[in-house]
Design a protein around this nucleic acid. Sequence first.
DNA 1: TTGTAGGCGTTATCAG
DNA 2: CTGATAACGCCTACAA
Lengths: 356, 356
Amino acid sequence: MANMKRIAELAGVSLGTVSHVLNGTARVREPLRERVLNAVHETGYQPSQLARGLRRDKTNILAMIVPDILNPFFPGVVRGAEDVAFANGFRLVLCNTDNDHKKELVHLNALQTYLPSGLIVIPSDFSDLTAQAESYRKSGAAVVCVDRLPRNWAGDSVTSDNAVGAFNATSYLIDLGHRRLAVITGPLHLTNSQDRLKGFKRAVRQAGLEIAPAYAQEATFDRAGGYAKTKILLRLLPRPTAILACNDMIALGALMAVREEKLNCPDDISIIGFDGLDVTETTTPQLSSVYQSSYQLGAEAVQLALDRFADTSSPVRHIVLKTELKIRESVAPPPKLESANGTGSAKRLRLAAVRA
Amino acid sequence: MANMKRIAELAGVSLGTVSHVLNGTARVREPLRERVLNAVHETGYQPSQLARGLRRDKTNILAMIVPDILNPFFPGVVRGAEDVAFANGFRLVLCNTDNDHKKELVHLNALQTYLPSGLIVIPSDFSDLTAQAESYRKSGAAVVCVDRLPRNWAGDSVTSDNAVGAFNATSYLIDLGHRRLAVITGPLHLTNSQDRLKGFKRAVRQAGLEIAPAYAQEATFDRAGGYAKTKILLRLLPRPTAILACNDMIALGALMAVREEKLNCPDDISIIGFDGLDVTETTTPQLSSVYQSSYQLGAEAVQLALDRFADTSSPVRHIVLKTELKIRESVAPPPKLESANGTGSAKRLRLAAVRA
DNA sequence: TTGTAGGCGTTATCAG
DNA sequence: CTGATAACGCCTACAA
C-alpha cells in the first residue's frame, strides 16, 4: 500500500504538502494540489488510520458494547449505530458482554488502547462504568449509555420512555375492563425493568386498583422466564385476566404457557409484550406490544456521541424516545364468566379455535 | 494513559527491556522482569494497539462484513465469530453492506487501512472480491468467505451443506407421500440458493417425479417474498401439497399466505423452511426447518482465518457444516381428497382448528 | 542480558 | 504557500 512519501514523490512535492492537501489544513496552490490529487487517485492511496490515529491521539473507531447480539432486540441498536457512524466516517468495534460486568470491564480496558472517539454501551448487569467512562472522557472519547443505565449514571444516555410505554399498555388493558392485572418484569436491577414496572403500577394506582404482590413476577428477559412465571400466574386464584410482559421474549413464553394450560389468548387472558419485535407479527394470535425503535436508539446514541465529541462542555443529555402501543390480536376484554377454576374457559377455547 | 517509557522509568530499566518482558522476545533476568511487571500492574498499563499495529504492520482487528445484521440469520454468525476472535485476543469491526457490492467495496477499502489480521465476509449480491481479497492477502491478512461465495471464489470458505439440507427436507416430504412439490428459492445468483435448489431437484429426480417450472419460484429472502410467491403457488392447478421454502423468512411469508387463503398448514399443505431460526418455534403451527448453525459458521470462519494466518501456504480449505432437519408441526402427509379446487379442504380446516 | 536508536505513516510546528 | 523535521508509542536489530 502506498504511503504519503510515495505520493509526495509522484507529485513532486514534499510530504507536508500532501498532508495539507489531504486535510485541507493549509491553502495549496492549484497546480500542486492537482498533482497531489492525481497521484492519490492513480495509486488508490488511502491514509493509514493507524498512523493517523497514533499521531492525533484518536481514531475514527467507536467502541460498541452490547450484552448479546443474539438477543433479537440488540441488532437493531447496532444497525442504527453503524449507519450513523458510517455516514460520518466512523467504524464500530462490536463486543458482547453476556451481561457479565467482568467481561465488560475487559472489553472496556482493551478497547481504550485503540483510542476510539466514542464508546456506545448497553450496560451489563450490575455494571458500574463510572470510572471507566471517566477514563474514556479524559482521553477525549465520548461515552453514551443506551437502553438501560448503570446505577447513578451521570453521563449522556439514550433510552425509550419505558415508564410511559408500560403505563399506556396497562391503561389500555384497564380500559378494556380488566381488573385482575399481572405483570412479568425483567430483572429488577435493570433500570428499564424498573421503569416499566413503575409505569404499570402508576396505571394501576390511577385506576384505583389493587394488585396483590403475587401478580407481579420478576423473570429473566427470555422465553423461559416468561413461561415459568406465567405458569405461576395461571395457578393463582383468582387468575389474572391480563398480563403485561415486560419484553416480547417474556410474552412469547407467556403465550406458550397459556396454550399449554389449554387456555386461550386473548379470550381467557390478554397479553401485551414490550419491544415490538418482528416475531410478534408471526405468532398466533399476533402479539400486542409496546413498540420501541431499537434502531433509533442506536442511531441517536452515535449522533449524541458525535455531538459530545464536537462540544465536550455542553450539558449532559438524556434522550428519551417515544414508544408506541401496537395492539394486535392478543388482547380482548376480560372473559365474562368470572369463574376462576377454568371450567368455563374450556368451552370458550373451543369456540375461539374454531373462530380462528 | 501510561506508555512504555513511563514503565521503563518506574522499573528503572530501558524501554527495550520493557518490551522484551512484555513480548517474551528475550530472556530478562528475574529481578528486572519483576520490577517491570510490577510497574505494569500498578499503572494498569496496556500497550497501544495503534503503535503496535503500526510498527508490526498488523493489528489484532478482524474486519467482519455482513449484508445486514437485522437479518435474523446473521447475528449468530457475528456472535460465533466474536467469541472465537475474543478468545484469541482479536476484535471485530462490524460492517453492513445492505447486499450492495458497491458499499461492500467501500468498506473493504476503508478497513484495510487498519491493517486487520483477517477479513471475514458474507459476500453481498454480485460481489466479486477476488481483487480485494488478493490485496488483503498481500498485506498479510487472511480472507474467509462465509455462507455464500462470490463467483469463482478460490479462497477459504465456510458454508453449510445447503444441497444436502434441501435434499433431506425434500426427500422427507416425498417419503410422506407428497408428489406435487413446490420450492421457493432465494435469489438465484446466490450460491446458497443455487445449492438448495440443486438439492431439491436431486431429491425430486431421484424419486422419479416431474416438477413443472411454475412450481419453482424465485423470491427474495424475506417474508414478503415468501408471501407473494406462495400466493402464486396456491393458485396453480393442481395445487402443490408441499412447499420447500429456502429460508425461514420465506417460510413465514408462506405460512401467512396459506392462512390468508383459508387453507390449513399442514393438513392442506406442508411447509419446510431453512435455517432453523428461533422464530420457527413460535409460529402456529411450529415450522419445520433445515437447521444450520449460524454460530458455528462464524466460529469456524474466524478459526480458519487464524489458522490461515499462522500458515499461509497450506492448501485452501472449504469447510462445509452439516445441517439438521427439524421436523415440527408444519408437515403432514398430503391431503387424501385430491380435489384441487379447495372445496374439500374447508372442512379439514375446521377440523384442524378444533384439534389445535 | 540489557540498552540504544531507527523507523513504521501521520500530523503539526516552524522556518523559509 | 511550501518544505523540513520532530514527535506519537512501539518493536527490533544491533551494540554494549
